[in-house]
Structure formats: C-alpha cells, structure tokens
Simulated assay, not measured.
Amino acid sequence: MNSTMYRAIILQFGAALITAIGAGAIVGTRGLVSVGLAALACILPNLFFAVRLTMVTNRPDASFAANFFIGEFLKIAATIGFLAIAVKGYPEMHWPSLLIGFAIVLHAGFIAFWKKP
C-alpha cells in the first residue's frame, strides 16, 4: 500500500506541473502561482501522511487503524491550514486557477490505485 501512496504523490506532482504550466500560459504568473500553492496545499500533507503510515507500519506495537484515522485528520487539517495561509499570503490569488488546480491535483492521486504495480 505504501508504494501506491508514494506513486499517487508522484502523479499528483506531475498533474500539478502540467496544470501550473497550463494556467501560466492562459492566465499568466498569477495562475501559475495559484496552482502551485494549491498543489503544495495538497501534496505536502499527503507526503507527510504517507511517511507517517510508513513509520507506523514498521512498528509492531502500533495500531494501524488508529494511526490511519489520526493521520487522515491531520492531513485534512494541514490542507485547510495551507490553503488559508496561501490565500492570506498571496493577495493576487487567481481563484479559478486555485480551485481548478486543487481539484485536479487532489484527484490525480486516484489514478495510482487503478493499476496494481
């Protein structure tokens, strides 16, 4: 499962790169930065979550289910926090680019679960 999680993060990064380039070509720098911030708000919490689950998997005394739900809660909270920081810290935000970029990056990870390695 962990290799699939890391593959999902790589796919999210690829989708973010393509979407940011597209937004940059259509909207300009504002679009590129907006997609980049949305991608960071999505990818970083997922990466931390994957690392946390990898560490828990290697510990025999840890409850995987409890750590999964705690990690998922922290991931969602971190995503909301990163988005709030991005909106506050970048006043020139292009909202359509942010929302479209966030949706594309968030859903790109599901492609990794379609095919087994």
Rank of each mutant, 00 (worst) to 15 (best):
Ala50Asp: 12
Ala23Tyr: 13
Gly36Asn: 03
Ala15Gln: 14
Asn46Gly: 09
Asp61Thr: 11
Ala23Asp: 06
Ser34Glu: 04
Asp61Tyr: 08
Gln12Arg: 08
Met55Lys: 10
Thr29Ala: 15
Gln12His: 14
Ala65Lys: 12
Phe64Cys: 01
Phe64Ala: 01
Phe13Asp: 04
Asn46Ser: 15
Phe13Ile: 00
Gln12Thr: 06
Leu44His: 05
Thr54Phe: 09
Leu17Asp: 08
Arg30Trp: 07
Pro60Arg: 13
Ser34Ile: 00
Cys42Val: 10
Phe13Thr: 05
Thr19Ala: 15
Thr54Pro: 02
Pro60Gly: 14
Thr54Val: 10
Arg59Gly: 09
Thr19Val: 11
Gly24Leu: 10
Leu40Phe: 00
Ile21Phe: 06
Thr57Lys: 13
Thr54His: 06
Arg52Met: 06
Ala15Trp: 02
Gly14Leu: 09
Asn46Lys: 13
Ile18Asp: 10
Gly28Pro: 06
Gly36Tyr: 01
Gly31Phe: 12
Arg30Cys: 00
Ala38Ser: 03
Ile21Leu: 02
Asp61Glu: 15
Leu37Met: 06
Leu47Pro: 14
Gly22Pro: 03
Ser34Gln: 06
Ser63Glu: 13
Ile10His: 14
Asn58Leu: 09
Val33Met: 04
Arg59Ile: 06
Thr54Ser: 13
Ala50Gly: 13
Ala50Ile: 11
Phe48Ala: 14
Asn58Cys: 04
Thr29Ser: 15
Ala39Asp: 03
Ile26Gly: 03
Gly22Phe: 07
Val33Asp: 00
Ala16Pro: 01
Phe13Tyr: 05
Ala25Val: 15
Val35Asn: 01
Arg52Ser: 07
Phe49Pro: 02
Ala16Gln: 03
Gly22Ile: 11
Ala65Gly: 12
Val56Glu: 08
Ala20Lys: 04
Ala23Asn: 11
Val51His: 03
Ile18Lys: 06
Leu37Trp: 01
Val27Leu: 06
Thr57Asn: 14
Arg59Ala: 08
Ala25Glu: 12
Thr57Gln: 12
Phe64Pro: 01
Ala16Asn: 03
Ala16Glu: 03
Pro45Glu: 00
Ile10Val: 10
Thr19Phe: 11
Ala65Arg: 05
Ser34Asp: 04
Thr29His: 15
Ile43Val: 08
Met55Gln: 03
Arg30Pro: 02
Ser34Thr: 09
Ala65Asn: 12
Ala16Lys: 00
Ala62Val: 01
Val56Trp: 06
Cys42Lys: 06
Gly24Glu: 05
Asp61Leu: 08
Ile18Ser: 10
Val56Ile: 08
Ala41Leu: 05
Gly31Met: 11
Val56Met: 13
Ile18Leu: 08
Thr19Pro: 13
Leu44Glu: 02
Gly28Lys: 07
Arg30Ser: 00
Ile43Phe: 07
Arg59Met: 15
Ala15Lys: 03
Ala15Gly: 15
Ala38His: 01
Ile43Tyr: 10
Phe49Val: 04
Ala20Glu: 03
Arg59Thr: 10
